[in-house]
Design a protein around this nucleic acid. Structure first.
Length: 257
DNA sequence: AAGGAGGGCAACCGCCTTCAA
DNA sequence: CTTGAAGGCGGTTGCCCTCCT
């Protein structure tokens, strides 16, 4: 009726879509925030391509927008790495690199200081493990990963999630460098090291956020891989701290301010 | 400055479901 | 119960803009 009466050269269905995806007053403009991106990654792991369902969890975002984000950003990165999206490698890349990266970005855009104590329940991509394994970016082993450390009582950057290759302990320096292959897709994920370690599983140590002597800088394990090619299109953050709290609380993190 | 390439995103397509007549 | 219109949703297309040469 609207299409007819307005004299639009559109079908009713087209009008409806135009309204839903663009004209609606509650539509949120601008790039997806790191928090939203993280949530999308997590929910996609849980629900797959259920864009409308995912969109329900992101107020002001449309299923179309989320779908476009996934196809143009996430899948693009997968292609550049010669990883089939949806494959186990792809999921590993998401949880081992992209999600921690996003967490770091969240930290950087957050004005509050947090200390992540434990994860009682892990986000969908993370598999919980009590395993504590050495991980190093240099020839210096990480060593003792237990005990409290003020190092992890700073801001969220200390929330670096120790991505731990398993089952065998190994130094991150043994892992293949991707940075040399930023222009041509890397097959680094296909080599034996990857297949034998990260590919199998990436553990998130649930007990290692307050570790004495854990001398890795935040995200250092991640930075060993040059993932600068992963463009997450960081937006001007509309992050408010209440949401920040809520997100981590809802996902099983204990957050103290 | 021009034009080609690639990316982002709104719009469209097609299939399935729902609902009212 | 049937049928057709409308809604819902995932996949795809094409336009427009930016960047690079």
């Amino acid at each position: 009726m609207l299409a007819k009466r307005a004299g639009l050269k559109r079908t009713g269905k087209s009008c409806r879509l135009r309204w839903l995806n663009y004209l609606r007053p509650d539509i949120k403009r601008g790039n997806l925030t790191p928090q939203e991106q993280l949530l999308i990654l997590e929910l996609h792991a849980k629900w797959g391509n259920r864009w409308s369902k995912i969109a329900q969890q992101l107020p002001g975002r449309t299923d179309n927008e989320i779908k476009n984000y996934w196809r143009t950003r996430v899948q693009k990165q997968a292609r550049q790495l010669n990883i089939e999206s949806g494959s186990k490698k792809f999921l590993d890349a998401v949880r081992c690199f992209w999600m921690p990266r996003l967490l770091q970005k969240i930290d950087q855009t957050s004005s509050n200081h947090y200390s992540l104590i434990t994860m009682d329940e892990n986000p969908a991509y993370f598999s919980a493990s009590p395993t504590v394994t050495s991980l190093s970016t240099s020839s210096t082993p990480v060593g003792d990963l237990t005990g409290a450390s003020n190092q992890f009582k700073g801001n969220l950057s200390s929330m670096s999630i120790p991505i731990i290759p398993s089952p065998d302990s190994m130094k991150i320096s043994q892992l293949p460098e991707i940075s040399e292959h930023t222009t041509s897709p890397s097959n680094a994920f296909d080599n034996n090291v990857y297949n034998n370690s990260i590919h199998d599983s990436c553990y998130v140590d649930t007990n290692s956020y307050n570790m004495e002597g854990f001398n890795l800088g935040p995200m250092s394990a991640i930075e060993t891989y040059d993932i600068s090619q992963f463009d997450f299109h960081m937006a001007n953050s509309e992050w408010v701290n209440g949401q920040h709290d809520r997100y981590f609380m809802e996902h099983g993190y204990n957050v103290t301010v």
